[in-house]
Design a protein around this nucleic acid. Structure first.
Lengths: 108, 108
DNA sequence: TGACTATTTCGCATTTCTGCGAAACAGATC
DNA sequence: GATCTGTTTCGCAGAAATGCGAAATAGTCA
């Protein structure tokens, strides 16, 4: 096995997904998008940061494959590309509440 | 409500979980522990970092609630406390492979 | 008690991340 | 074509994370 096996590469990509979600502002963005797509201007209001910060957070999330974007008219709309994020955060909350966390199926 | 509402607090905790998983070495640790508990010395070998680095990674994971530890004999054993991490990473891999990602149930 | 083993904590240098304002850019409208 | 709007990129300063070796800690065994 060479020094950078496939494992390592895949792990890096997976870690990038977690890293992207590992920031309160980005997690909030994902939460907002769980209900449906939003344009950047709406997210700036919701998150309470400047345009540049929100834009970079969005690009991080998109680079990780968590979001998709689409330019429509004058605005850019972002939407959630990985629905399982929702169920995973639900699982985290359940675990935090001490409920029995029994995994059945996450993704078909 | 003061400047730090409950939402914000919970989001921070959730983000801490993701942040903890957002590092290749920590993700590898979690993967190794998915098969069963391990002592620190084994993890040092598996991960390929120094003792201090591994120890701090473990404490980060434990602080986030992802791992549990137990001192037994001369060694400290760590085990996975959040099984849903496994199904979530499986979901990520499925999505990466382009398979239909259909969420059914993550946690009981 | 004293040596030994397994693990954690400390201090430091290096790197990475964050958020801001200014500037650049793209597309729509006049 | 000029302009206006929505969004991204750039450059910077401050904060946080990373990994290392040395030192500290805790528990075991002679």
């Amino acid at each position: 096995m060479p020094s950078a096996p496939a494992h390592t590469q895949r792990r890096k990509q997976r870690a990038a997904v977690f890293k992207a979600l590992g920031h309160p502002a980005r997690l909030q963005i994902v939460e907002e998008l769980a209900d449906g797509e939003r344009c950047v201007c709406e997210l700036v209001d919701l998150v309470g940061l400047g345009w540049s910060a929100v834009s970079r957070h969005l690009s991080v999330l998109k680079a990780a494959g968590i979001l998709d974007d689409e330019k429509r008219g004058l605005q850019v709309y972002y939407r959630l590309a990985l629905p399982c994020v929702k169920s995973f955060t639900a699982c985290l909350d359940a675990a935090r509440r001490g409920e029995a966390v029994e995994v059945r199926r996450c993704c078909g």
